[in-house]
C-alpha cells in the first residue's frame, strides 16, 4: 500500500503541509499496512472462498400460493477457490454464469447464503467495514453522477475513502495520464464522456484508493485495443509496485491469457476448472488449443456451429 507512485509525500507524512483530511488517510493506510503484514505472516491468503452458494428467485418462477416462495436457482453453487497475495486471478464464463454475483459478494454488496468468504482473513459477513477498507471495485457499468464532472465525482469518491481532495488529485492525475486519459477532460460532465472514457475514470477512481484487493468486473469492456492494453499495463504495475491482488472477470480471452496468473471457468454457478492459462489449454486438448477452445469445451458441448454450417 505504500508504493512510490501514490504514496503520500514525506511532507504529508510529517504533517507539515497536510491538507485537511489527509492525515486521517495516511493513518489508515499505515494501519492497513500493518494489518496486511500481519496477514502475510499468518499466511492468510488475499481471498479465500469456501463452498460459497447464492440463490436467487427464478425470474420466470411464479409464486405458488401467497405464502410459498418463488422457486430459486443457484447463481453460485459451492464455489471454492483461493487467491494468493499479489496474484491476478481471472474468471471467465458465459453470460449469467455468476461472475458478477461472486464479485458482489466479495465487495460486501450481497450476502452469501452458504459458505464463507474471507479477504485477508476478514470475513465479509462478520466484519464488512474492514473488508471495505481493503477493497475497491470497477464494475462494468462505471456508475457516476452523470451531470457532475469527472473531478467532482472523484472528489466525492475521495471523501468516501478518507482521501483529501488534494491527495486524491495527485493520485488520479497520474493514473489517468498513464491510462491515456487527459486529466483536463475531468472538467467535462460524465454524461459527455464516451463509454470507454468513463471506464477509465472509473478505473482511476478505484486505483487511487490503493486497494489491497482490487475487484474488476469486466474492466476493459468497451475500451479500444490501445486503451485496453494501457489499463492492463496499469493493473500489472499495481501488482508489481503495490503488491495489489486482483480478482477480475472478462469476456476477452486474450486479456485473461495475458493478464492472469490463474484462470477459473465458471459455468452455471460452478467452477468447472481452474489453473494457469497454459494448464487450461492443455486440459482442453494440448498443442494448438486456444483459451477460447478451452472456454467452449468447459462451458458445455463444443461449438458445433461451424461444422453444421450455421
Amino acid at each position: 500500500m505504500s508504493g512510490k507512485n501514490i504514496a503520500p509525500t514525506r511532507d504529508e507524512k510529517e504533517g507539515l503541509k497536510m491538507a485537511a483530511g489527509t492525515y486521517e488517510r495516511v493513518e489508515l493506510e499505515r494501519e492497513l499496512d500493518g494489518f496486511l503484514a500481519e496477514a502475510m505472516n499468518d499466511g492468510r491468503p488475499a481471498l479465500k472462498v469456501e463452498a460459497l452458494t447464492k440463490r436467487f428467485p427464478r425470474p420466470e418462477g411464479k409464486r405458488r400460493g401467497f405464502w410459498r416462495r418463488r422457486p430459486k436457482f443457484a447463481a453460485l453453487a459451492a464455489v471454492t477457490f483461493t487467491v494468493e497475495k499479489g496474484e491476478i486471478f481471472g474468471f471467465i464464463g458465459m453470460n449469467g454464469s455468476g461472475k458478477s454475483t461472486l464479485i458482489r459478494i466479495v465487495s460486501t454488496l450481497l450476502m452469501p447464503d452458504e459458505g464463507q468468504v474471507e479477504v485477508f482473513g476478514v470475513d465479509v459477513e462478520g466484519n464488512p467495514a474492514r473488508v471495505r477498507e481493503l477493497i475497491n471495485r470497477v464494475a462494468v457499468d462505471a456508475a457516476f453522477f452523470k451531470v457532475l464532472s469527472g473531478s467532482e465525482n472523484l472528489r466525492y469518491a475521495a471523501r468516501l475513502y478518507g482521501l483529501s481532495p488534494r491527495l486524491a488529485r495527485e493520485r488520479y492525475d497520474g493514473l489517468l495520464t498513464r491510462i491515456g486519459f487527459d486529466p483536463k477532460r475531468l472538467s467535462d460532465q460524465i454524461k459527455s464522456l464516451s463509454r470507454g472514457e468513463r471506464q477509465k475514470v472509473a478505473a482511476a477512481r478505484a486505483l487511487m484508493t490503493a486497494p489491497a484487493l482490487l475487484l474488476l468486473d469486466e474492466p476493459t469492456t468497451g475500451l479500444d485495443p490501445r486503451s485496453k492494453r494501457e489499463v492492463q499495463r496499469v493493473i500489472r504495475e499495481m501488482r508489481e509496485e503495490e503488491g495489489t491482488t486482483v480478482l477480475l472477470t472478462t469476456h476477452d480471452m486474450e486479456e485473461a491469457e495475458r493478464l492472469c496468473d490463474r484462470v477459473g471457468i465458471l459455468h452455471e454457478g460452478r467452477i468447472v476448472t481452474i489453473g494457469t492459462p497454459a494448464e487450461l489449454t492443455a486440459r482442453a486438448g494440448g498443442a494448438g488449443t486456444t483459451l477460447e477452445d478451452a472456454f467452449l469445451k468447459f462451458t458445455g458441448a463444443e461449438w458445433l456451429g461451424d461444422e453444421n454450417g450455421a
Binding site: 485537511a20 483530511g21 492525515y23 486521517e24 488517510r25 493513518e27 489508515l28 494501519e31 453522477f145 451531470v147 457532475l148 467532482e152 472528489r155 466525492y156 475521495a158 471523501r159 468516501l160 478518507g162 483529501s164
Partner: peptide
C-alpha cells in the same frame, strides 16, 4: 488509529455527502 482520527474520518465523509449534494444543486 485513535478514536479522534476515526471520528475525523467520518466527519470528512459526511462532508463529502453534503458537498456532493450541493454540487448537484449547483449543476
Amino acid at each position: 488509529m485513535t478514536i479522534k482520527v476515526r471520528a475525523l474520518r467520518e466527519f470528512w465523509c459526511s462532508i463529502g455527502f453534503a458537498e456532493r449534494n450541493f454540487m448537484l444543486v449547483k449543476r
